[in-house]
Design a protein around this nucleic acid. Structure first.
Length: 450
DNA sequence: TTATATGATTGTAT
DNA sequence: ATACAATCATATAA
């Protein structure tokens, strides 16, 4: 797609258009003018200074002029210039010119121009919309190209998500840049060419019958040609974007399973927060760091896990038991320490951090896990209940690592108390503050059905 | 090979 | 914006 093609195409249409005119003129010279009067009623003015009443001479005169006009393009520039000047000064020129104009008007040549206003091409609109949607067209986000590239890089570096996306964005920016410069180039070329042609036609309109309307038409032709070129540009840009997109999508689709360790960590968190498996932003960041994955991957993982767990709790029971036991083992130590600590401090006020704000980094999680293990309701006052009893429960749980399932294949111990039949954990969004008074111990197992 | 598991994407609702 | 649900496409187990 280059300017030269464009010019060539435009020139083609110009040439063909001019051919039309030439043909018309030929027909005028050969037929119409040879008659007594011109079609349309306008008679030729009487030939001044020509003594002969001889019609043949007059015809000859006109024929000469027409011939000169027709052949002017065959001659060298200087010759043509001279001829042109001569013709312009010819005494018959104004009359002939006006006659030609009139005839041309009547021949209906300009009818073709009537259907100019092109309806908005649906395909072009489609392309425009897509480019807009992809952020190629439209306002440039983030200022200049360098700035936006930097912004993309910064976003990719600082915000977790798009290390892989930054590359995509950079490429997209590149495409956009090319698109815009090309577009500008075309616009400029179009304007240049238009003014050039207009000047040319204006210049020629002194010797040829060219109406302003026709110039307008010609400009229309040029513009259409250029816009078709623009469409090609848009199309290829779209294509490039699509290719880029699919390539990156493919790359992202080519998933790799997380490492065993990462899955372990995620599962541990999930099952120890079974009542409310919605890690906060900070928690996600920490998990992401621990698992060496991105935060959005953590989000994805939890999203998938929640939904898949909920969908088939029975299937995950074993896993639940496993991780519950695992966290319990860890908890045992931590709690033991906590017990010692609280005993040393004050028995009546165990760690008041019921919202998971223990001093120890993990103890919040552990508490929740114990609540789950307990089979008791998991909120508020229970958190502050006798620590020793929780330790007992832990021992109990640890002793039966296999667990036991009820008739529905659900373990009676590790069901998520926050999970409700109607659809999930939503009601337990804020674990530390939500209290479910209606839910007594034992009643929590009857509501998980699928 | 098929079947299941799993990470990612998309569309939708809130 | 976030979560959910459905779905895709691959990875891995059978």
């Amino acid at each position: 797609m280059s300017f030269s093609i464009c010019v060539a195409q435009c020139t083609d249409s110009l040439a063909s258009s001019m051919d039309d005119q030439a043909r018309i003129m030929q027909s005028i010279g050969g037929v119409s003018l040879s008659g007594h009067s011109v079609q349309g009623g306008m008679a030729l003015p009487p030939p001044h200074g020509h003594d002969g009443s001889d019609g043949d001479g007059r015809k000859q005169d006109i024929g000469d002029i027409l011939h000169q006009i027709m052949t002017i393009t065959d001659q060298s520039l200087d010759e043509a210039q001279a001829k042109k000047h001569g013709l312009n000064c010819h005494r018959m020129k104004p009359a002939l010119f006006s006659v030609l104009c009139e005839i041309k008007e009547k021949t209906g040549l300009s009818i073709r121009g009537s259907q100019e206003e092109d309806p908005p091409d649906p395909q072009l609109m489609r392309l425009d919309n897509m480019l807009l949607a992809e952020g190629v067209a439209g306002p440039e986000k983030g200022g200049g190209s360098a700035a936006s590239a930097a912004a993309a890089a910064a976003a990719g570096g600082a915000a977790d998500s798009s290390i892989e996306h930054s590359d995509y964005r950079a490429k997209l920016t590149q495409i956009r840049q090319i698109y815009h410069t090309e577009l500008e180039k075309y616009e400029q070329a179009c304007n240049e060419f238009t003014t050039h042609v207009m000047n040319l036609l204006r210049e020629q309109s002194r010797t040829r019958p060219i109406s302003p309307k026709e110039i307008e038409r010609m400009v229309g032709i040029i513009h259409r040609k250029f816009s078709s070129i623009q469409m090609q540009l848009k199309q290829s840009t779209c294509e490039a974007v699509m290719i880029l997109r699919s390539r990156f999508l493919d790359a992202r689709r080519k998933r790799r399973n997380f490492s065993k360790q990462a899955t372990e960590i995620l599962n541990e968190y999930f099952y120890s927060h079974l009542s409310n498996p919605y890690p906060s932003e900070e928690a996600k960041e920490e998990l992401a760091k621990k698992c060496s994955i991105t935060v959005s991957q953590v989000s994805n993982w939890f999203g998938n896990k929640r939904i898949r767990y909920k969908k088939n709790i029975g299937k995950f029971q074993e896993e639940a038991n496993l991780y519950a036991a695992k966290t319990a083992v860890n908890a045992a130590h931590a709690v033991a320490a906590a017990v010692q600590n609280s005993q040393a401090n004050s028995p009546t006020t165990p760690n008041s951090g019921s919202s998971g704000s223990f001093n120890l980094p993990n103890s919040g999680d552990l508490f929740l896990s114990m609540q789950s293990l307990n089979g008791d309701s998991y909120q508020g006052a229970q958190v502050g209940a006798n620590v020793q009893s929780q330790v007992d429960t832990l021992r109990h749980v640890i002793s039966q690592t296999a667990g036991y399932n009820d008739a529905l294949g659900r373990n009676t111990m590790y069901s998520p108390h926050g999970l409700h039949a109607n659809g999930g954990w939503q009601n337990a969004r804020t674990p530390s503050s939500v209290i479910s008074p209606t839910e007594g111990p034992g009643s929590v197992y009857s509501d998980t059905s699928n």
